[in-house]
Design a protein around this nucleic acid. Structure first.
Lengths: 344, 344
DNA sequence: TTGTATGCGTTATCAG
DNA sequence: CTGATAACGCATACAA
């Protein structure tokens, strides 16, 4: 806790030049074994660690990673942060968080100010901001390492970690079909988001494999929030006949469906099956617990962090070797059941 | 996005020395109006912004704030981050997040490594880590600006933002009493946390004002998690007679109570009133929605950020002028009702 | 009010 | 394999 020591102290005590100490720190191969050991001994005795700012000034690196996002689900964000941190703190990087506004005219400018101000070594971009191609182009052009978390491949694999939402939604469709449901409704997310269209397409495709059609009047667009989940469900559940199952674009909205059904006296899953997407904390807490799709968010975040650090330290080829795809999986809980003819 | 310009470029183009540019940047008063304008014009033309690393090297400041925490509720963390960012991004600071382990032997060392490595200008510490006096002492001794978010005043006001959990719990007690409940149970948090003991004490005190005693067999200690909420509730709800109300130390556990009651066929709020603490997102999403105590977390975070930046920029006296106390409030929803004699 | 010179702790250039 | 020495971009004591 006393005055922190510098490379000069190390050099003096080890009886070498600072250049040599620098070599040791950075793992240069061209240092004699004896010299290296001596320097390392002093380093640990002094509990010395290099000054990041000075290092950055000289080498234009900051050991800082940025996380760019716009107002995601708190639980999703938390998962991402954990995943990223698990990797980056191991490797000596810190994480700087940066909310921004998806719709802002100055989004790109804002992000670059953020990046330049703090001299970020790289950034991880979360959906839906990650779907913005002009941001990605700007990042690429600026030569700034970046990775996008998305629901469908939108970029080179060294810049992508994607969950196959389409396939996952198709799996949900198959599950519904096998339960005997045929009159199924879907509460979609905003159509401007790729994640929304992917899930909808996947669901339709999955259904059609069983000869089931997702009728246009059974599709309502929500906003991925609990509140719009309630609204959409209310619309769906005041029509006659009632659908026997509802698939919502995410868990928040599915929770809203539960609420609306409860208010309308509709029993779940007896009269209505409900499923969500994400498997965030909420999904397992509500009653009945939600059947949903689990996205391995934490793992995606870890991959993103690994990828970006590979890119930073070994240049982009290495980044390609980190997996870029993860598979979401179906989690069956209590909110879905076999189709039963409504009691007269 | 082209090569970023430096203070030298500005100086050259404005026809002044870099010392003068530096003065303008830092808002020194002793600069001629004409000179200042000229410099500012060039600055905006060049879209120049000072290199934080160089700045830090020269003045030992980083414009980085740290957030230290151990595994808090995701929703709580999200609220905090938002609050802090609202303030600090206005004032030119970035936020670096840093999870750590409350019980770790090397906690203090870890935190200092984090702080020193990134040359953080200050740190905000979240509960329960914020309750660790030895960490605070070390921070103080090192002269590093810091602010603790706590449930009871543990430090000088310039280092504290506290929510009066005791008073809030007492208010909940009053509310229960006025609903006619007298056989009340409490699921506490871990007793090693001050927040837990404060809430329990407050609740007891509030009850005793109405001549109601919180019987020892009606107190069970949980772990602030959903799962332990279920377990504790199960113990409470398999005793005879049943308590008519349960107050849980937080919303997660209260949600667990809802689940346990549901499984046991106990109707809420008709047969049992349930309340939580925090008012996190979950509270309003479960069915029935939870009566709870709302902690103004976001506001606390804003205050903490303001306080710490005051400390950094104007030295500790100013930090004292930022409010250090906030009052949680009772939020009545659907999970509580007037006491009704159990039907024979 | 303005400018000069020096230092902050590293990395990088170029010799040896 | 190792060592002087010059950047890196900015702030600040000290002059003018």
């Amino acid at each position: 806790m006393h005055k922190t020591s510098t490379i000069n102290d190390v050099a003096r005590l080890a009886g070498v030049s600072k250049r040599t100490v620098s070599r040791v720190i950075n793992g240069s191969l061209s240092v004699g074994d004896g010299t290296r050991e001596r320097v390392e001994k002093i380093i640990s005795e002094l509990n010395y660690s290099p000054n990041t700012q000075a290092r950055g000034l000289a080498s234009s690196r900051s050991y800082l990673l940025g996380l760019i996002y716009d107002n995601p689900d708190a639980l999703y964000l938390d998962d991402v942060q954990r995943g990223v941190l698990e990797v980056c703190s191991q490797l000596g990087y810190e994480l700087v968080v940066h909310p921004c506004r998806y719709r802002s005219e100055t989004l790109v400018q804002d992000c670059f100010n953020f990046i330049n101000r703090s001299k970020l070594d790289g950034v991880i971009v979360l959906p839906p901001v990650s779907e913005l191609d002009h941001l990605a182009s700007a990042l690429k052009e600026a030569g700034r390492p970046y990775v996008r978390l998305t629901s469908v491949l939108l970029d080179e694999t060294r810049h992508s970690v994607v969950s196959d939402d389409r396939a996952a939604a198709a799996e949900m469709a198959r599950y519904f079909a096998q339960l005997g449901h045929s009159d199924i409704a879907f509460i979609s997310g905003p159509q401007r988001y790729k994640s929304s269209t992917e899930r909808m397409e996947g669901f339709k495709l999955g259904l059609s494999a069983y000869g089931i059609e997702l009728k246009p009047e059974r599709i309502i667009e929500g906003n991925n929030t609990y509140e719009t989940g309630i609204e959409c469900a209310r619309q769906l559940l005041t029509q006659q006949p009632l659908p026997s199952a509802i698939f919502a674009n995410n868990d928040q909205m599915a929770a809203g469906v539960l609420k609306a059904a409860h208010d309308l006296g509709i029993a779940i899953p007896r009269q209505l099956s409900v499923a969500g997407f994400d498997d965030n904390l909420l999904a397992s807490r509500v009653i009945p617990a939600l059947t949903t799709i689990r996205r391995p968010v934490r793992q995606m975040a870890q991959l993103a962090a690994s990828k970006i650090i590979m890119d930073i330290e070994h240049n982009s080829k290495a980044a390609n070797n980190v997996a870029a795809k993860v598979a979401p999986t179906l989690v069956v809980r209590e909110s879905t059941a076999r189709f039963a003819e409504p009691a007269a």
